[in-house]
Amino acid sequence: MKVQSYLSFEGRCDEAIAFYGKALGAEVVQLMRYSDAPADMPPDADGCAGAMPGPDKVMHAVLRIGETELMASDGRCSGQAEFKGIMLAITAPTEADARKWFDALADGGQVMQPLIATFFSPGFGMVGDRFGVGWMVVVGH
């Protein structure tokens, strides 16, 4: 069994893909836009209530960040994504990597816990990025 994260950016998925590419070196593995759907697909065939988002919006994307695949889409394009009660965790091999990734994620976001040495790691911090996604960055042993 494999459990993966699927994030709905509510209309800002292209922006998020570019941001994670720059901040974390994320690579696009797969990208489908609503315009890629079959022309004869009924408007509600995607399983969502209401009209489909615009054709240029991301229906489904897979990003590879290190050894992990993160899935994402524009969702229903409501304009404001809400990522409550979850965080994504990054284990960095070095303090320098942790600092680089933490600072990149914090750009335009909000630091919740500065990256500091703790009893369990030489570096641990928490940040909400510019999209509201929570991240824990920890230096592994």
Rank of each mutant, 00 (worst) to 15 (best):
G108V: 03
A18T: 01
I17Q: 09
A26K: 05
P93M: 00
L105W: 06
E15D: 10
G132S: 12
V62I: 07
E27K: 03
Q30R: 11
K100W: 05
E95K: 13
A98F: 10
E10N: 03
I90V: 10
M1V: 03
V133F: 12
T68P: 00
G134R: 14
H141I: 00
S121A: 04
V139H: 06
M32I: 11
I17H: 04
T91M: 08
M71Q: 06
Y6K: 09
T118V: 04
F120H: 02
F131M: 14
P114Y: 00
Q4M: 07
Q113H: 15
S35Y: 10
M71E: 04
V3P: 02
Q30I: 15
K22A: 15
G21N: 01
S121P: 00
G85Q: 00
L88A: 12
P42R: 01
D97P: 03
F83E: 12
F119A: 03
F131S: 15
G140Y: 05
I86N: 10
G75M: 10
D46M: 02
G109V: 12
E82G: 06
E69V: 07
L7F: 12
T118P: 02
L115W: 06
Y34T: 08
V58D: 02
E15C: 02
K84C: 12
I90T: 03
C77D: 15
A16M: 09
A92C: 02
V138D: 01
P122R: 15
A72W: 07
D36T: 04
C77Q: 11
G140I: 03
A72K: 09
S78V: 09
A26S: 01
E15Y: 04
G132W: 13
H141A: 14
G50T: 03
G109N: 13
A45M: 14
S78R: 13
D14L: 12
E15M: 10
Q113Y: 14
G50V: 00
W101M: 08
L115Q: 03
G128R: 14
P114V: 01
A92L: 04
P42K: 03
C48T: 11
I65W: 04
E15N: 07
M87D: 05
G125H: 11
L115Y: 12
G75V: 08
M112W: 06
P38T: 14
A106K: 12
T94M: 03
C48D: 14
F9G: 15
G108L: 12
P53F: 14
